[in-house]
Amino acid sequence: MSADPNKLGIFVTSPQNMRHVVGVARAAVRAGKTMMVFFTYKSVHLTKSPQFIDLADMCDVENLAICADSYTCEGYDTAADIPKGLTATQMRTQSYHGAVLDECGQYLVL
């Protein structure tokens, strides 16, 4: 699959940038772009932010995921505590980041 020039990949590794994630996502939607968003490392704590639901509402199921291993490493329960706004299929591995890199013509780390 070649990268879609109108698709923005957002790779979130810091727990400090939720307002930027949501702000960029809203702007991307306004601009008629699609996006894929992947949360890993300490950023999985952002799934507990009320704004995470807003983000989930902007993304199709296949375009938003978090790293299940990071979620477990940070002390959360991947079976009993799937973040609000996500389904079990969105608890993924680092291979999802590979998909972001392959499918998105533009890419932003936050």
């Binding site: 809203r26 702007a27 533009q106 932003l108």
Partner: peptide, 18 residues
């Protein structure tokens, strides 16, 4: 930040480093 401007800039560039 004006995120609309940022998204416009991202798509106007070949590469973005954040």
């Amino acid at each position: 930040p004006n995120y609309d401007v940022l998204v416009g800039m991202i798509f106007a560039n070949d590469r973005t480093v954040s």
